[in-house]
Design a protein around this nucleic acid. Structure first.
Lengths: 214, 214
DNA sequence: CTAAGGTGGGTTGTATGCAAACTTCGTCAG
DNA sequence: CTGACGAAGTTTGCATACAACCCACCTTAG
């Protein structure tokens, strides 16, 4: 995933383009041309081209010469593969955290509490998603491996493309997620790797099922 | 890691720039300006700028506004973190391969044989490195997870930046690597995960030690 | 009717001009 | 001697012009 610093126009183009790809299901499977984006964003081709190149590096679009940027729809295979990698990383992280003996879960605890206190309503779904993302990211960060954290961040971007937000619209999903997060936290605090691993597997399996059944 | 397809000038700029960053230790810690590269490559700024953006996405350079592209020297921490992630991926892959019951090591076998038959000389070091890279990549590919394979490919690029080629100049290193690869292969064929994991850990530990002691 | 060939429209690829921003270095006051 | 200040030079950021290329459509010969 790209950092968000840098020049203004390119940054704007990158962020708007990313949000477009990630949040508009209608453009999946279509080609975006630079001309379209010039009209849509009111920027010149240069920053748009450069943003497209960054998006392509993130794996969010495919640049087809003389055709445009293809927004590849996510398929079940990619979802399964991504979830497999995510599980591998989270399980490995849990192992490292528990082996280190320190179990630094203060940040996760705080994020969990914030999520508990969040009222359940359509308006708060983005907040739920943000806290969810930060909850998991903080666990991986706790392992203290920046290379791993970067990879994990890139993976999370894919979740959005997979339509993760739709999985939160079900009325009981927030409660369920909180419960699953709680189990992960408690298992970590107890220092029990097998219980932690089971909780993580369960959480990811639930997410994957929801993503695949859309 | 970027794919190598696409337009000619940008592709040229990307590949030459990548090779420059990966093979010239003298430019580590320096800034490359677009003007330098225009003179060096004989291309206009546009393809060079776009190649720099791709390199930055690969994590090989840092783009500093109005300063240039900083070639960050690799440090011990990054080497250790990369090796940790590499080990996580290879161990997970081994587990998946063995769990699948198929153990498709034909490609690895072939690559191993080619490496055995390679004469040991300074001229063949690039071939050793290429076969080594393909040996490990084919193991990860055998897991059949494209998302994982992509991540692994990106990681391997870092190895080059870490100066992996220098680890092959020692007279007995090729023999040692062949021995370690042989142990991994045999363990995989025997279906013994613990033995496979031990062989992989040993191989990565040896590599890491050589990289750190440079 | 079919297939081959050409032509036009549209899209990206590359080069370049200009503006803005930053760095650097010299100068000067304290 | 040190630090602030300013001006010049350098570098990137953005815009735009033109070239190259691809594709789709139409025409035409068989």
């Amino acid at each position: 995933m790209q950092t968000s610093s840098g020049p203004a126009a390119r940054r704007t183009a990158y962020e708007r383009l990313r949000d477009l790809v990630l949040t508009d299901p209608a453009i999946q499977g279509t080609f975006l041309t630079e001309g379209d984006l010039v009209k849509r964003f009111g920027l010149s081709r240069t920053p748009i081209r450069e943003a497209l190149i960054m998006l392509a590096s993130d794996g969010l679009v495919d640049l087809i010469p003389h055709r445009g940027a293809y927004i590849r729809p996510s398929d079940d295979r990619e979802i399964r593969e991504t979830m497999e990698v995510r599980q591998m990383i989270e399980l490995d992280t849990a192992r490292q955290i528990l082996d280190s003996g320190e179990t630094p879960v203060a940040v996760m605890d705080d994020l969990y509490r914030q999520q508990v206190e969040l009222p359940v309503s359509p308006d708060t779904i983005p907040d739920f998603i943000s806290l969810d993302q930060r909850f998991h990211a903080s666990m991986v960060d706790a392992a203290g491996n920046r290379v791993l954290s970067d990879i994990y961040t890139r993976l999370r971007v894919k979740h959005v493309r997979f339509g993760i937000s739709a999985t939160w619209t079900s009325a009981d999903r927030p409660t369920q997620v909180l419960d699953e997060h709680s189990r992960i936290l408690e298992a970590l605090k107890s220092g029990d790797y097998d219980a932690t691993a089971a909780a993580i597997r369960e959480h990811i399996a639930q997410t994957q099922n929801l993503l695949l059944s859309r």
